[in-house]
Simulated assay, not measured.
Amino acid sequence: MTSSIGGNIKILNKIIVILWVLSLSIGCKASNLELDNKNQIEAEVNKAFEGLVEAAKSLDSSRYFEFFDRENFTGLNADGKVWHSIKSLESIILPGFQMVEKTISLDFRNVKITVINQTTAILVNEYDQTILLKSGEIIKQSGGGTQVWHQIDSSWKLVSVSSSNSAHSGT
């Protein structure tokens, strides 16, 4: 009877070891899925960001504002004033786009996307921009920005932006 109990304990120990190894394997697969999902979210947000940048470069205000959540938007302008609605942002962006003859360059560097959860990500960046105004003046700007992206109905939309910049005129 003692050998039967000892044999059962050995079998039980083997089962415990097998279950432990399986749990590690499942845990690794779950971590990889989480990493894959994070990478997918980063790629989707980056694609939306690139669309926003292209709309800004081409001065396509309709396309530009498609990337914003019209119902939940709020933000902070570089001058320290807040926008509590998309209308507030539009009142600055639309006249600005109308003053620009063309975007000479708009380059982003040091872009980092941080995934908060399945539906929220934060993108930070630094940028350099040169634009030609309709008046003939050339404006060069550098700065940075923070964007909060939120997934709505499988589309990534901006719910908040904040920016900083320094501008100087050129010829």
Rank of each mutant, 00 (worst) to 15 (best):
E44P: 01
Y64P: 00
K57H: 03
V124C: 09
P95T: 09
G27P: 06
H84V: 04
S142I: 15
E54V: 06
K29Y: 14
I116R: 03
A121E: 02
A43S: 11
I5W: 13
L24E: 07
G51E: 05
I5R: 08
I116F: 00
E101V: 07
R63M: 08
L33V: 01
L33D: 00
I138G: 01
A78P: 10
E126S: 12
L52K: 02
S135K: 07
E71T: 13
H150W: 13
I104F: 05
K47S: 13
I9G: 05
I138V: 11
A56H: 12
G145A: 04
G51V: 00
S135L: 03
E90S: 12
E137H: 12
V45P: 01
G144A: 05
I92N: 14
S58W: 03
Q151S: 11
G7I: 03
I41S: 00
G136N: 05
A121D: 02
A167K: 12
A167M: 12
G136H: 06
S105A: 13
H150T: 09
Q98H: 15
V148K: 03
A55V: 01
N117W: 01
V124P: 08
I122P: 00
S61P: 02
S164I: 10
S25P: 00
N32L: 00
I26Y: 08
I93Y: 07
V161D: 06
S3V: 11
T74N: 15
G6L: 14
I152L: 07
E101I: 07
R63H: 13
M1P: 11
A167V: 09
H168M: 12
K29E: 08
S155F: 03
K87Q: 15
D153P: 02
N125C: 11
V124D: 09
E101Y: 03
K47D: 15
N117L: 01
H168L: 10
E44V: 05
V82D: 15
V53S: 05
I41M: 01
S88C: 09
Y64R: 06
